Simulated assay, not measured.
Amino acid sequence: MASTNGQEWRKTTADVNYLVSTATALLDYDFIDMAFRTEDMYWAKPLPRDQLTTLLANSTTFGLYRVLPDAPAPKSADSPSSPRTPSPTLENRPTDELEQIGIARVITDRVTTTYLTDVYILPDYRTHGLGKWLIQCCNERAFLVTTPGVGKDFYTRELGFWDVREEEERLVCMTRRFFKMD
């Protein structure tokens, strides 16, 4: 059941309708717990439900959902290919049955800085352009930490992110010695 809080974006790919929403009421905690347990999210660990609730309450989570049954998305001025154009209102719209298939969590001050973390999509949905779309729905001021190989190549190629070391004259990325950097 869809909620009326948050922002949402819709997209249809191969006659399947998808929804990205920041509505917290839509989040499937069992899905998120399962994602945190996968090898694909090696940096994350499963959390007790109360800690997961706190984590999600103190960040913005973009849930990626498959709309069931595959009913046509409502006609509007918002283009499904325009990821940063949220629906102007979520009031008075039909209720959808949703299956959560992905997440992207951000920690943000909602003005200038967004730290993108915990991006996950079920393996069966990874070749449909949904990951790129999901991340495009997130704030474009995102700071991203990823793996040097495949992760870096993907985010550079698909989304235009670049290595902070390329900005050494204007930006320095710092950490405590807990993390060893090459």
Rank of each mutant, 00 (worst) to 15 (best):
A104C: 14
P88G: 03
L55G: 05
S59Q: 02
S3R: 06
S59Y: 04
E91M: 15
I32H: 00
M41W: 11
V119N: 02
Q7T: 07
Y18M: 03
A25P: 09
R49I: 10
G63A: 10
R10P: 02
T95V: 15
Y120Q: 05
D40A: 09
D96N: 10
P69H: 09
S21T: 12
V119A: 05
H128A: 12
T117F: 04
T60Q: 04
S76N: 12
Y42H: 11
N58S: 07
R49P: 07
M41A: 01
L27Y: 05
A73G: 00
D15K: 15
V106Y: 04
P48A: 14
A104W: 03
L98V: 08
T4F: 08
L55Y: 13
R93N: 03
L55H: 01
P80S: 05
P88L: 02
L19A: 07
T108V: 08
K75L: 13
T53Q: 04
Y42F: 12
L68N: 07
L116G: 06
T85V: 12
E39L: 08
R49G: 09
D118W: 10
S87V: 14
A104Q: 02
N5T: 15
S76E: 10
I121E: 04
L116C: 08
A77R: 08
P46N: 13
F62R: 00
P88C: 11
Y120N: 01
P74G: 02
T108C: 06
A25H: 07
E99I: 09
K75E: 15
T38S: 02
T38G: 08
T38C: 05
V16T: 06
P80M: 04
R37K: 15
P86L: 05
R105P: 07
L52W: 05
R105H: 07
I101R: 01
Y65N: 05
S81W: 14
I121C: 06
W9A: 09
P46Q: 10
L52T: 07
S79Q: 01
L122T: 01
T12R: 11
I101M: 05
P72L: 06
I121T: 01
L55A: 15
T95G: 03
I103Q: 01
D96F: 15
R110T: 09
V67P: 03
R66D: 00
T12H: 05
L116P: 04
L55S: 11
L90A: 10
T22E: 05
P80H: 09
A73R: 14
Y115L: 14
Y125V: 09
G131D: 00
D118M: 02
D96S: 13
P46I: 03
P72F: 08
A57L: 14
